[in-house]
Amino acid sequence: MWFPIVLLGVIGFAAYFLNWNLLLSLDFSVVWEYRMVLLKGLMLTLALTACAAVLGLFAGTVLAIASQSGFAPLRWIVTAFVEIWRNTPLLVQLIWIHFALPLVTGINTTALESGVIGITLQASAYFTEIVRAGIESVPKGQWEAAYSLALPARIRWTRVILPPALRTMIPPLVNLTISFFKGTAILSILHVSELMTVTNRISNVTFKPVELFSSIAVIYFVVGYLMSKGTLRVEYYLQKRER
């Protein structure tokens, strides 16, 4: 009952305050004109996402296994790494790697290299947590059975512990990948030529920020939405297979 009234109020309010001259002169052809540039930007965004996901998952798995080690200092190092990268902003990590680190190491990295290093390291930290939770979700009896059968460590991990752990990990893994897809836009701070950066550049030349930023918001939304709908599919498939 109240909803139509509120909606009318909002519409009236918007109609009054909107700049109709600008709104009526919006020209989205600029998006089409620069489609190839935008597409290349999107490709780099997706490549960076894939890079963060694949390298991050690999490193995260190694670190998660290390975090189960009986050797305490190794566990401490893994924990420190994970906590540092999880509890500071990606943006700060990126500018630290790009501007501060070379002053110490003397090795200059390009913006793209710094971006890849930063997002991959942060991804590894987050993936470590997820893989660790997955490993810890495997019932103790499975471990004991593997030990009592005297299976070698490699077989124990690859055949007994990781397969069931992986199944519980898939939904958070996909969610995390989507959040790194969103995170790649932060690389625009270093002017890595992904979608956000190229949009900024086009906007600076064409002076059409409304058309451009609205369009890429939609592009990010559509790609991200498809990825998260894909997660539901994967979960559904896994549930079906378990029956």
Binding site: F17, L18, N19, L22, L23, I178, F181, K182, G183, T184, A185, I186, S188, M196, N200, S203, P209, V210, F213, S214, I216, A217, Y220, F221, G224, Y225, S228
Partner: peptide, 22 residues
């Protein structure tokens, strides 16, 4: 939830003032 925060921030910063002419 789905669009990157940076995009949202830039959109508000560069589009909203134009759209509302304030």
């Amino acid at each position: 939830r789905t669009i990157p925060e940076v995009v949202l921030i830039f959109w508000v910063y560069s589009c909203l003032p134009l759209l509302l002419s304030v």
